[in-house]
Design a protein around this nucleic acid. Structure first.
Lengths: 256, 256
DNA sequence: TTCCACTCAAAGATCATATCATTTGCATCA
DNA sequence: TGATGCAAATGATATGATCTTTGAGTGGAA
């Protein structure tokens, strides 16, 4: 496999979070997401205190957080039980980060891409009726810059502009839940980039579609904005498909 | 066999959670969501220890959870600062529960409804290609029961069947993130019901559309399933619209 | 005056220990 | 056989002490 690039360029937030709490949380979270701690297995506090050589306070605080994420469940006289993935808060940014760093990476990318495919078109639609005049201008400007970066073959710059573009559309949707998906989109795009799934010169089509989305939003044509974004998503989805077609099965887990 | 809703109705979970942790968490979470603790204001641990008459252990554990949700940020020498809503994990079930119970109730219902509008059609589309034979049969059966309950004017039963129907579609989508939205859908439908937004005899149209969705999924016609679900969402959205048109503005907050 | 280095104290972070409360396994007894 | 009750295990809570970080004030140098 690939040499597992450590912390990408400007990875979000926590490569080496200081503090015992963050350290233990990170380790346990990773272990659970990675399946090293299988669902059903049981830990107990004293054991963790020993293993990590930290105090009870630290361990308990970490466990509370893990419990709130749905990773564990503490029961008296039994211990701390690892819960199945179906109980996890899969929208928690931390969980997504851990999953993206685990073996389930592809499955996670797939899920997020599907979510994008569903949400972004509607976000574009909503943005068309809610965006402000200046924001709309900026969006069109961004699309133009993407065109320039694409023509110039400046991958790095294109990636950042791409992320920014989608971020602004979600922001302009006026729905705080959509806005929160912005980080996920950034993760997917970055992931796609890292895996060299982007042609050095982005498809002419894609560039045009970004421009179409921006223009439609500015003209307040929600339906057209949605359509353009749908096409964009279809193309993005196809590009990603090659990634997991060879690694992860379509995830027909009967989780519940 | 019967869809035999196991604990379909057992949705809510924590009215009077026992334990100091849950009690304090609930109170603080509600206060922050409700705006009683304004963003930017500062607390400190000892103060909370006094206010709730619990030990520091309890307070600290609660604060860690609140921090992981993005509600607060603890800084040495300063205290515990309440963070703005833009930092919240708006997908956390707890947060949604708190917001639904707060003054922002309508805004929350609106956000979720918009999210549904975006996600459910795509979920139906995916379900068409991923659902199992038996699950598909059950789905069609559910739609049929909805028809019966609708004709009979049994609102209560209709509500439960409706929730179960959407739950199954999301489940069949095979995307664990979509599955997680199931609880949100249940909340919205229940909320709509409580506010008497459902005609005593559900629209003939709606009944037909549920049947269409189910059938399209069973026939593995993803595009048709999506279309039918879109119509369903449009109608649901229109019904909800009257709710917030009088209470909450379109939320053009420039949060970031 | 302006600015930088230094000091000090406030508040969270961590640790260690003790006690309380609940659950479960198991032995006891009818 | 089955109900009953005891006791150990384990998390939950309480408490006091110490460590670490950092904002704010202080004073001297440019």
């Amino acid at each position: 496999m690939e040499p597992s690039s450590p912390e990408v360029a400007a990875a979000p937030a926590l490569p080496a979070e200081s503090g015992l709490h963050a350290r233990v949380l990170e380790h346990l979270g990773t272990a659970i997401c990675g399946g090293e701690l299988a669902p059903g297995s049981v830990l107990n506090i004293d054991e963790l205190v020993d293993r990590y050589a930290v105090s009870r306070s630290v361990v308990r605080e970490v466990l509370r957080v893990l419990a709130s994420i749905g990773f564990i469940e503490a029961r008296r006289r039994v211990g701390v039980m690892i819960r199945p993935a179906s109980a996890w808060n899969v929208f928690d940014p931390q969980v997504i980060r851990w999953r993206l760093a685990s073996a389930g990476r592809m499955a996670q990318l797939r899920s997020i891409t599907e979510l994008r495919t569903a949400v972004e078109p509607h976000a574009a639609y909503l943005a068309a009726s809610r965006i402000g005049r200046d924001e709309a201008s900026d969006l069109v400007g961004l699309a133009a810059k993407m065109w320039a970066a694409g023509e110039a073959g400046d991958e790095e710059r294109f990636l950042h502009l791409d992320i920014e573009f989608h971020r602004r559309v979600l922001l302009a949707s006026g729905n705080e839940m959509f806005v929160r998906l912005q980080e996920l989109v950034a993760e997917v795009l970055t992931g796609r980039h890292k895996h060299h799934l982007m042609p050095h010169h982005p498809h002419e089509q894609a560039l045009q579609m970004h421009a179409d989305v921006a223009q439609a939003i500015q003209r307040r044509d929600g339906e057209r904005a949605r359509q353009a974004m749908v096409q964009l998503m279809e193309q993005a989805f196809d590009e990603m498909k090659s990634l997991w077609e060879q690694t992860a099965p379509p995830d027909r887990s009967k989780a519940e």
